[in-house]
Amino acid sequence: MRPEEITAALRAFDASIAAGTANSWPALQELARTLLGAKLFTVMTVDVRQRLSRREYTSDPRNYPVSGTRPIHHDRWFDVVHTGRKTFVANTLADIATVFADYETIGALGCGSVLNIPVIVAGELLGTVNCLDVEHHYTEQRVTRSHLLEIPAKLAFLAAGC
């Protein structure tokens, strides 16, 4: 991806947020798809004190609807995202299956890699931005580029009142 393409994508996101006419999630989804690619895009919020998470936004409401809360599980994914506050990457469906019980649904959608970006504001984990695509999609280059989503994700969460 050329620098001018990245700049154009960031400007489009900024214009959408500045206009205030649309929900911040579709603008973030479009930015993620442009910068990284994402067949499936979701946003999860977390309530660390209550130990609950909630799907706040989805690009596929039929297979991954916005839902009620569910308990946070302590596993390898939790250690990376919640404890380490780092981006989690799994590039095969077999690796995804070790942390996500819905791996069969993920695979049925043609996805086999996942990238989960933690969103942290004022020292608090607000949630994650989740991009899924075909196996081996989230290369080292795309993972590095995913850092460009961190500030827009914070803005989207704050604009959405999360």
Results as ranks from 00 to 15, higher is better:
74 H>G: 06
25 W>K: 11
14 D>E: 13
63 N>V: 11
132 L>Q: 11
129 V>Q: 04
25 W>S: 10
65 P>M: 13
53 S>A: 12
65 P>F: 13
52 L>A: 01
78 F>Y: 15
109 L>D: 09
128 T>Q: 06
34 T>K: 08
122 A>D: 15
117 I>S: 02
7 T>W: 05
29 Q>K: 14
75 D>S: 08
115 L>H: 09
23 N>Q: 13
74 H>K: 05
144 T>C: 10
21 T>G: 15
59 S>A: 14
146 S>C: 07
14 D>V: 09
77 W>F: 13
62 R>A: 15
57 Y>V: 07
123 G>N: 08
147 H>M: 09
24 S>D: 07
162 C>Q: 12
101 A>N: 03
129 V>N: 00
82 H>G: 00
53 S>D: 05
17 I>N: 10
133 D>S: 13
34 T>Y: 01
95 D>Y: 10
19 A>P: 10
138 Y>E: 08
72 I>N: 02
125 L>Y: 10
79 D>A: 15
117 I>T: 01
143 V>N: 02
153 A>C: 09
47 D>N: 09
27 A>L: 07
153 A>F: 03
20 G>W: 00
52 L>V: 06
149 L>F: 02
131 C>K: 01
109 L>A: 15
91 N>F: 11
83 T>Q: 14
125 L>R: 05
101 A>R: 08
126 L>G: 04
144 T>S: 12
103 Y>N: 05
5 E>L: 15
32 A>E: 04
31 L>T: 05
1 M>P: 08
86 K>M: 08
21 T>N: 14
26 P>Y: 06
106 I>E: 00
122 A>L: 10
96 I>Q: 01
131 C>V: 05
23 N>C: 15
100 F>H: 11
142 R>V: 10
35 L>M: 03
154 K>P: 04
4 E>C: 11
94 A>V: 07
99 V>A: 00
73 H>G: 03
106 I>C: 03
121 V>Q: 09
98 T>Y: 06
28 L>H: 07
158 L>K: 14
136 H>Q: 12
103 Y>R: 07
55 R>T: 02
16 S>T: 13
135 E>T: 08
130 N>V: 04
159 A>W: 04
12 A>C: 11
117 I>G: 02
27 A>W: 00
38 A>P: 01
150 E>G: 01
161 G>V: 03
149 L>R: 01
151 I>P: 01
47 D>W: 02
58 T>C: 07
36 L>D: 01
66 V>T: 10
146 S>I: 00
13 F>R: 03
67 S>E: 06
33 R>K: 14
147 H>Y: 13
1 M>Y: 03
94 A>E: 10
138 Y>W: 07
151 I>G: 03
33 R>A: 12
1 M>F: 02
136 H>N: 14
14 D>G: 13
120 I>T: 05
83 T>L: 14
12 A>I: 10
33 R>S: 12
8 A>C: 10
157 F>P: 10
30 E>K: 14
79 D>Y: 15
123 G>F: 11
63 N>L: 12
126 L>A: 04
156 A>S: 13
25 W>M: 09
60 D>S: 15
111 C>N: 06
157 F>H: 03
99 V>W: 09
25 W>L: 09
42 T>Q: 10
1 M>S: 14
117 I>E: 02
70 R>H: 14
69 T>S: 04
2 R>T: 09
115 L>R: 05
141 Q>E: 15
22 A>R: 14
96 I>G: 00
